[in-house]
Write a protein that binds this DNA or RNA. Structure first.
Lengths: 337, 337
DNA sequence: ATTGATTTCCAAAACGTTTTGGTATATAAT
DNA sequence: ATTATATACCAAAACGTTTTGGAAATCAAT
């Protein structure tokens, strides 16, 4: 039986009101009383019941994040870093972070969002891995439920988000590859409804054009943002008649899979084949060879998104509601001859 | 303004009670009425307020996990997989999962646990990365708060947990290394208060003894379970007068760092140096060369722990409260000549 | 001495559920 | 015709806070 505010009040012969206000730092309680209350609360191990407070205040002091992944074992360090950022900033703001996972664009996802929104389970949610025509954005907007997003989408209205200019990043990468003498550059892509795919693929096409290279359909292999997917796509590309001399993965995991495919084919990455990824996860420093990548500050973005979200839930103005970041090109041995 | 149960009741000219009981499936409401209620609730977008329900029921239907890591950017896939398991099983049981991070064995950690326990924020918690003399175990036990743990500790009382027999795993690994002709086997260890360190290090010493090898202090390098830590420790060991021919990392991340140290020193892993890790994270399949490791079923353990915890919170008996698993030795190229 | 301000406290309402302990009506058994 | 039993419903209490709108006591100003 945990101690309630009533216990503390009785102990001190004060009213519940006074105890509550003392602890909340209101100015209408005498300093001496406040000290007594604080001490008693401490001694009795009192902490306000979260659910009671939530019910009364009509807010949960909790934000939610629903990982959009299909496999139960999500193995993408991107999410770890993103969640770490969310969690740390949430703690810093004295918020709780509620996490679950739901397969993207399926009934199950809808159910979770509805439960959280209608059950007033969280004050706001963070979205990531945006899709073109994203129903989540529509739904939350229509329910006028606070949310922020990592990534853009083609919604007809504005919403608070941080985007990363993948296209410009990939263009820079291609310029670098061309500089290294590459003419045959392939791309291992992701599911076509993902905003990041559309964005990065656009960069791929633009980058080729800028370098005066022609776009070849056969140099595009569709994959799924996983290591295994990258491996298979890499195998396929390397088995072509005249294979590419450089391969860009839609993310780092894909690129790591490609590295493995090259190794198994006896191809030396760096000298014979250039490989690059996107995200800048920690692993890329430790692969063989270390991987060239376009780094996006996932952790910091996550923290910033939480700050934007709290502004939203507090009905404050978000100072910069549409951020667009340029990823940083980190050149490592995997694209150096 | 979200719909409440009162709105639904008014709409149907029923009492709040009846609506509540209809939705909860009690038998004292006519089937026809129940259907009307269900339909109206659906149409009006009603979902019970979680906080109101929690307050009344005196339970949160939420379990908590506090990641014991110091760096804000935790980069250990172990945690991703663990959290994925917790999250999936929680969803399956219609529970929420609350997550945060706190540096192990520090005041901040204490504060978070106290907030959750005293504020009745969660129904129970899951512990991992246990320490000898773990204050969390003592505290939760004394507060008689439901918890389960991944890992053992030296508490004087019993508690529900799943342990992994690291010692026996490392012994098997050493036998394998000896079979490959290794006589000089080093160990890169973790913080000495971690149960996993004590356990695995014991296996290291026992394994050497069983093989008739002598234990040499200089072959032990202390590290911190990260890639960078493993890299530094690996560098140090490889710079010794007569360096080891095999190095065991306390976990996979450490081993991955060692791989990199070897590569930089121009040492060919497999033929010249054997390297092995512990955990069996996905990365190990994709390193160069693929890494020998002792795999523990982290994801499944996490799911099972949640099931054990719900048994505990429901005051049911846990059918098997003390599990001890043997890790599986997966031999890959990093320990084959 | 009266009035006005200020300080310090509090009773009661409200938040939205679930649960307890019924009551009224219809049906079945005597 | 009475009594017992089921069936279908409901009013009110309770969960533990925060907030509203005072009230009493003290102090300052006239």
């Amino acid at each position: 039986m945990p101690t309630t505010i009533r216990d503390v009040a009785k102990q001190l012969n004060l009213s519940i009101t006074t105890v509550s206000r003392a602890l909340d730092g209101y100015s209408d309680v005498a300093e001496e009383t406040r000290q007594r209350v604080i001490q008693a609360a401490e001694e009795m191990g009192y902490a306000p019941s979260r659910s009671a407070r939530q019910l009364r205040r009509q807010r949960t002091d909790t934000i939610g994040y629903i990982m959009p992944t299909s496999q139960p074992r999500f193995a993408d360090p991107f999410f770890s870093e993103f969640i770490a950022g969310l969690g740390d900033e949430a703690s810093a703001q004295n918020l709780d972070l509620l996490i679950t996972r739901a397969p993207p664009d399926q009934e199950a996802e809808r159910v979770v969002y509805q439960r959280w929104v209608q059950g007033r389970r969280v004050d706001g949610v963070v979205l990531s891995r945006m899709r073109q025509d994203d129903w989540r954005v529509r739904y939350l907007h229509e329910s006028s439920f606070p949310f922020v997003a990592f990534g853009r989408t083609n919604a007809s209205f504005e919403f608070t988000h941080i985007g990363v200019d993948g296209a410009s990043g990939i263009r820079r990468l291609i310029a670098h590859l061309v500089e290294q003498g590459h003419q045959h550059i392939a791309f291992v892509s992701a599911a076509s409804d993902l905003s990041l795919q559309i964005d990065r693929f656009k960069g791929y096409q633009e980058g080729l054009a800028e370098a005066g290279l022609i776009f070849e359909e056969r140099f595009v292999a569709e994959s799924n943002l996983t290591r295994d997917g990258g491996y298979l796509a890499g195998k396929k590309l390397l088995a072509l008649q005249s294979p590419p001399t450089a391969i860009i993965g839609a993310n780092d995991l894909t690129a790591i899979g490609i590295l493995r495919a090259a190794r198994e084919s006896g191809i030396s990455v760096g000298s014979d084949l250039a490989v690059a990824g996107f995200d800048g996860i920690d692993d890329t420093e430790h692969t063989a060879p270390p991987l060239t990548t376009l780094k996006q500050p996932v952790y910091d973005c996550a923290r910033r998104l939480v700050r934007m979200l709290t502004a939203l839930t507090n009905n404050e103005a978000v100072e910069e509601p549409h951020v667009l970041l340029i990823p940083e090109l980190i050149i490592r041995d995997s694209t150096l001859r």
